[in-house]
Design a protein around this nucleic acid. Structure first.
Length: 885
RNA sequence: GCGCGGUUAGCUCAGUGGUAGAGCACUACCUUGACACGGUAGGGGUCAGAGGUUCGAAACCUCUACCGCGCACCA
């Protein structure tokens, strides 16, 4: 067998295995399998998307779960797909068209534009899928779905019609959030509030009935004065009682408007007077409704002033108009003052421009089954990890408002509603013969016009958990096992999918537990940069995962990220952590390489309890502990702990301690010992590789295959069971002996280092010991100490000044020709102080009656033992110190 | 205003009642027959602050401060 190269080369290994896995159809789920099902649907990335670290995190976790389940004998379905991302994709293509052809979508017309989007999609879309493959994702690509697949689109239409027929979807003229850049309505969830600096303008409105008297009002939006239809104060506000029922002159587009009183006004704010602008503010709209005020809209859809009556403002952008309006007022002496002011205003999540509240005809969904959706999470039919997201979820559902689902966007699922051609304005009444809602177009299409709008992208995604599955697949794999996603889409997607599951009942029976979309939801953290900022394209602070894969390998990236990532906290990204992942891969590679240099491995190594060295017993016991720790970490979705346990076990327990200790046997002439040591190496390697496979699929498969550790691909090898170590005689005692030896080794190394002896200098140690059990371990002890010679002598008397350490095995002396007495004195003093301090602390505790009486007996006993140890050490060290004067 | 997280070594973070941990970075020594993407040893922390519960608190409770997030308000 050829020697393995010194360094693992992911670039050569990773593509090789991925191709093979695809060829073997290892990721394809079989709905007819008798194995129990395990399923995950991938949160579909946008078709325009490029792989980000967020995707890497998210999909690595899904892959870990899928791969582990596959190894555990589940029939695994990990269903991938993409989202058409209505507004996002349309915006991207519009930008592209403007750049390349200087055309808008209106220049092309609906049909042609959609054709161009498809063209663009074929060319630039779906890159992310190929990127996910490089990451090693074990998705069932044969089932890849798209939210615009015919069947999926039909399902969206069907659901729309159903909800309409139930009266849950309705059309209405309401205040909505208008995005003046994307030129569409958006939902409440798509509005994010941000502080913005501006001015609070104090404007004087002259009172019609009392010329010369002014009513002063504070506003941030003087550009909407032309749309004011009343002035309002709180009914309890004494300052303005005499004005009720009178009028003021609106200072721009001069006209009389009434002064009214309304409970909604906060007397504390500004002057306690509100200018009521029903067309451009939600609260004002409500006040207008109560007082039957007219609605005057003075803004165009793209946020310009539409008010020919004020020529100076007409046509100006809303923010320019704001300044200009203030100037106009000032020139007329109607601006009392303008104070710098910071307030929160809603921005469009999509376009990052301030949202314009706007009265508009839109489609809305009255959410069904909200009580049930609340209950399934509260009662843990669906379990959230970490659990604190339950509260956020509940808060949203308890305050839920109707969902504005129509978008003035062409790219997406068109609303299946038609209006009679003759009808202007379009009718809104449910069940009217002027409106037709159906999956098929109306029987006499020439008399109807279809609604121009499409539905919110999330109105299609909320069916993702089951509409992606054909009936046979659904039967086997729905409800899914777990959803892995970011907490930022808990409302957009998670909550709505739960509602959809409960409402549309895609499950095998009508029972609620068969219809919830998933049993567990694991919320990942959000990856931030070193300064704690969100990763974003515009900041350019998001490293390209593909570059990281090139540099560190997919396994290195995966492991490095998982080791720091998902405690449910946000994650600060640091490339050094990925480097650690790569280093760990190299470490594992090299220890496998070391094993391979000593002959072929055994796929089913036999280990005989009697033949095991004490060091083997120790490492196997540690392996058992690691298996347990990993199991419980997985149960809580603590992937970082799984990774950390594996890291510590491989690097410390296995490489640093076991392999180093086992070299005595491996290089020994004693065939039995050698065979046993190599068998233990195989057992541990085999187990470790299997435990690591979900995290590092490529490397583990490569080593697994090179060492010939199994007949099947590691992907389908069962995870290791704990070894039956209870058959080992005197297990606990043996393990104590090992830790005594290891402690002694550390003490000896410390002596060497404190005595300023170079690491490579061979030196003599003398261990004053009477314990016969240690004799046969002398070669190993000596090896680990890098000793030229290790003498065991129960009656050794050291010359004064010999460096000494008190160890669990006995006193360990460093035999050097001319010890530096001053240096040794210093070292001993330090040691005596340290141990003395600790002894005093322990002693004080033991002198505390309350502690001795109340603390568990084992803890007290532990303290007693510790004190004895420390006292013994102190005595010895002091004696050594006396000899030095 | 309401709610949820967080504050532990220079950095990134583990640690749910019993002597403060890891990795990186740092210092010293070492290319030894798996690995310098490595080994060995070392320095470094009044666990944000105050109070409380407890024999014992980084951990549990209360309050405060600061950071982040969500919701509401936002004239």
């Amino acid at each position: 067998m050829a020697e393995l190269p010194k360094r693992y080369d992911p670039k050569a290994v990773e593509p090789k295995w991925y191709e093979r896995w695809l060829e073997n159809r290892d990721f394809v789920a079989n709905p007819e399998s008798s194995k129990p099902p395990f399923s995950i649907v991938m949160p579909p990335p946008n078709i325009t998307g490029m792989l980000t670290l967020g995707h890497v995190l998210n999909n690595t976790i899904q892959d870990i779960l899928a791969r582990r389940a596959r190894m555990q004998g589940f029939e695994v379905l990990w269903l991938p797909g993409m989202d058409h991302a209505g507004i996002g994709t349309q915006t991207a293509v519009e930008k592209y068209l403007r750049r390349t052809e200087n055309k808008s979508r209106h220049d092309l017309g609906r049909e042609e534009f959609l054709r161009r989007v498809l063209e663009w999609q074929d060319k630039h879309g779906g890159i992310i899928i190929e990127q996910l493959k490089r990451l090693g994702c074990s998705c069932d690509w044969s089932r890849q779905r798209y939210t615009l697949d015919d069947a999926y689109a039909a399902a969206v239409q069907k659901v729309f019609v159903e909800l309409y027929d139930k009266g849950l979807i309705y059309r209405g003229r309401r205040m909505i959030n208008w995005d003046p850049a994307a030129l569409t309505a958006v939902s409440d969830e798509e509005v994010i509030s941000k502080p913005q600096k501006g001015y609070l303008y104090f404007v004087r409105y002259e009172i019609v009935e009392e010329p010369g008297r002014f009513l002063e009002v504070a506003t941030t939006r003087p550009e909407t004065i032309m749309a004011d239809t009343a002035m309002a104060f709180h009914p309890g506000d004494k300052r303005y009682q005499d004005l009720l029922g009178k009028h003021v002159w609106r200072p721009l587009a001069r006209e009389q408007i009434p002064i009214i009183a309304d409970e909604a006004i906060d007397p504390e704010f500004g002057t306690g007077v509100l200018k009521v602008t029903p067309a451009h503010d939600t609260l004002d709209f409500e006040i207008g409704q109560r007082h039957d005020l007219p609605v005057i809209d003075v803004l165009t859809p793209d946020g310009r002033v539409n008010c020919p009556a004020v020529a100076e403002l007409d046509g100006l952008d809303r923010f320019e108009a704001r300044k200009k309006a203030a100037e106009l007022l000032e020139a007329r002496g109607l601006l009392a003052k303008a104070e710098p002011y910071e307030n929160n205003i809603g921005f469009s999540d999509r376009s990052d421009v301030p949202i314009e509240p706007r009265l508009s005809e839109q489609w809305f969904l009255r959410y069904p089954k909200t009580k049930e959706a609340l209950a399934v999470v509260r009662d843990h039919l669906i379990q959230f990890f970490p659990a604190h997201w339950e509260k956020v979820y509940a808060q949203w559902l308890e305050n839920i408002r109707d969902w504005c689902i129509s978008r003035q966007v062409w790219w997406g699922h068109r609303i299946p509603a038609w209006y009679r051609k003759s009808q202007i304005p379009q009718p809104t009444a449910q069940g009217s013969d002027k409106i037709y809602v159906g999956i098929k177009s109306p029987p006499d299409p020439e008399n109807w016009i279809q609604d121009d709008d499409t539905v919110d992208t999330w109105f299609s995604s909320w069916l993702w958990a089951y509409e992606t599955m054909d009936p046979e697949t659904r039967k086997k794999f729905y409800p899914t096992s777990v959803l892995v996603t970011g907490p930022d889409i808990i409302f957009f997607w998670v909550a709505r999918m739960i509602i959809a599951g409960i409402e549309f009942k895609p499950g095998e029976t009508k029972k609620i537990e068969d219809n919830i979309p998933f049993h567990h939801v694991f919320f990942t953290g959000i990856i931030r940069d070193g300064q704690g900022r969100k990763m974003s394209k515009s900041l350019g602070n998001s490293p390209d995962p593909l570059e990281l894969i090139d540099k560190y390998g997919a396994d290195g990236l995966r492991f490095g990220l998982m080791r720091i990532a998902p405690t449910g906290q946000d994650i600060r990204f640091d490339e050094r952590q990925i480097e650690e992942g790569r280093n760990f891969a190299t470490k594992l590679w090299n220890v496998a390489r070391f094993r391979q240099m000593h002959g072929p491995s055994d796929a089913a190594p036999k280990i005989e309890a009697e033949a095991l060295s004490i060091f083997a017993v120790e490492v196997l016991a540690r392996l058992n502990e690691t298996i347990d720790a990993i199991d419980s970490a997985y149960r809580e979705y603590h992937f970082n702990m799984v990774a950390q346990h594996l890291y510590n076990f491989v690097w410390s327990d296995y490489c640093d301690w076991f392999v180093e200790a086992a070299k005595t046997d491996i290089f020994s002439e004693d065939q039995a010992k050698k065979t046993s040591a190599l068998a233990v190496m195989d057992v541990v390697l085999s187990a470790t590789l299997r435990l690591l496979h979900p995290f590092m699929p490529y490397l583990t498969e490569e080593i697994w295959s090179l060492l010939g550790l199994g007949k099947v691909s590691i992907q389908f090898a069962a995870p290791p069971d704990k070894l039956a170590l209870h058959v080992v005689a005197n297990l606990a005692e043996r393990r104590r002996l090992v830790s005594s030896i290891y402690e002694t080794v550390q003490a000896g190394r410390n002596l060497r280092s404190a005595s300023k002896l170079p690491s490579n200098r061979k030196i003599r140690f003398i261990l004053r010991i009477d314990d016969k059990r240690i004799f046969e371990q002398t070669p190993t002890l000596s090896r680990l100490l890098k000793a030229e010679d290790l003498t065991l002598d129960a009656n050794y008397t050291a010359p004064a000044g010999t460096p000494v350490a008190v160890t669990p095995l006995g006193d360990l002396f460093l035999a050097i020709a001319a010890a530096d007495q001053g240096q040794e004195r210093e070292r001993l003093d330090k040691e005596i102080t340290r141990i003395g301090d600790e002894a005093r602390t322990v002693e004080a505790k033991l002198q505390n009656d309350a502690f001795v009486k109340r603390a568990p007996a084992a803890v007290v006993e532990e303290h007693r033992r510790r004190l004895n140890d420390l006292d013994a050490q102190l005595t010895k060290l002091k004696k050594a110190r006396e000899g030095l004067s």
